[in-house]
């Protein structure tokens, strides 16, 4: 619908919205940060005093939660486009809650790991996990905050806005942190 309107106004070909494009470039930048960290991991892995860890089950649960939240995000985007605002708001809330639950589960996982003797001392798989997964948590929290802002905006009565771009940007970002976690998790499991 938006695209049609844009075409009407500008008479130009379909172009990507600048905000969406900015997001993609931003994601490239985030990818570079994690690429830097995971390549540091690969380099360190061949060092003599490398220590691997046993992953607590919690990380599997959190992975499932993350995947579920991606699904609810996608469903809320669909409802927004169909102007079903009540459902959109509900699914947005669920996504934010699942995101928060993911963060809590990650911390529980960290706690179990810490108790089993993997602390900050040394520089094995565990230490990298704390930092890399910790940075990922920061990105998830950033997403949760953005969801909260959208949630408040969705309840503001002052202006009705049916522009789907912010919701699309949000959902792209949310899928990104989801895929990023999948990549990191698989990376840690296979590159032990």
């Amino acid at each position: 619908m938006n695209i049609a309107m844009n075409e009407q106004v500008s008479g130009q070909k379909k172009r990507i919205h600048p905000h969406k494009f900015t997001l993609w470039v931003g994601l490239a930048s985030v990818i570079m940060m994690f690429a830097g960290l995971t390549s540091a991991y690969i380099v360190k892995r061949s060092a003599p005093s490398w220590i691997t860890i046993e992953f607590p089950k919690t990380f599997w649960y959190s992975t499932v939660v993350m995947l579920a939240s991606s699904l609810t995000m996608q469903m809320s985007l669909r409802d927004f486009k169909q102007r079903d605002m009540a459902k959109y708001r509900r699914l947005l809330t669920i996504t934010a809650l699942l995101g928060s639950l993911f963060v809590v589960l990650q911390f529980i996982g960290f706690g179990k790991l810490w108790k089993s003797g993997t602390t900050f001392e040394g520089s094995g798989e565990g230490q990298f996990l704390y930092i890399i997964a910790g940075l990922h948590i920061l990105h998830v929290l950033g997403g949760v905050i953005a969801l909260l802002i959208m949630f408040i905006k969705a309840f503001s009565a002052k202006k009705k806005n049916y522009d789907a771009v912010p919701v699309e940007v949000m959902s792209t970002y949310w899928h990104f942190v989801d895929i990023l976690w999948l990549y990191l998790f698989v990376f840690f499991l296979t590159m032990a």
């Binding site: 309107m5 844009n6 130009q12 172009r15 009705k160």
Partner: peptide
Amino acid sequence: AILHGSEVS
């Protein structure tokens, strides 16, 4: 048009 085109309201 691209930035604000859909925010006519």
